[in-house]
Design a protein around this nucleic acid. Sequence first.
DNA 1: GGCTTTGTTTTATA
DNA 2: GTATAAAACAAAGC
Length: 274
Amino acid sequence: MPELPEVETIARGLRPSILNKEITGCEVRYKNIIKIPEKEEFKKRVLNTQVLEVKRRGKYLIISLNNEKDLIFHLGMTGKLLIKSGEAEIDKHTHIILNFAEGFDLRFNNIRKFGRVYLINNDEPEKAGGLADLGPEPLSGDFTLEVFKKGFKNRTTFIKSLLLKQGFVAGLGNIYTDEALFEAGISPDRRANTLKNEEKEKLYKAIIKVLKKGIKYCGTSINDYVDSKGVPGSFQDKLKVYGREGETCPECGHKIAKKKIGGRSSHYCPHCQQ
DNA sequence: GGCTTTGTTTTATA
DNA sequence: GTATAAAACAAAGC
């Protein structure tokens, strides 16, 4: 489940392989994964371009081309971006293949077809799904405690649901929200408007800490996630609550609970998190 | 073959 | 208009 740390790991892995390299071929094997433009237009516009930049914004991976266009991937639940030899066997869930002049491919693989691909002019990000509506980037200078606190204005929803909103903070998914709430000692079913100032500050710090740690361990591989070289991350071994229902809390020894909050499964320690 | 999984979008409601 | 919550949706694996 690629959230911010996973997408960041992929971006870092891709750069040495594709920066300044030329795309010399493009095969679209499943056209519905491309939201904009149509398949033939897509192929025409990526062909014979050069990769200028590889960026990440929230959970979006952005490959800037030298024709003022951005090739944007949202990986959904199971999306992968893999660097493979042009001769490597093609997995049946590979939907887009970009061939590079040096003989390697960048392949977009997506078992459950929940991913999305956009090719847009770089001055119209509003055409790429929710990209233009993302909130502050949590590991950048834009994400200050003041900005974070302002996001609580008029919010009465579950804190868990608020954290998952990409317009509140960009890049958090189910894994890192559960971990951040545990780190902050805040129960996921608290209403956002009931958090005290010091709790908001704890949560603010916890978000940054958990995301940085996720990146340090190259992301969380539970079912599908691997980086651009096919290597899994190791943060799954560091998770304190996510996916650990029934196990004992690493802090207090009580049992970790799991319940649906705002329609999403949430893992937490009912003793440590209030 | 029903259930679960996730992020995002859509729809309905207050 | 705004916020919330629920539902829909993508599809595959078990």
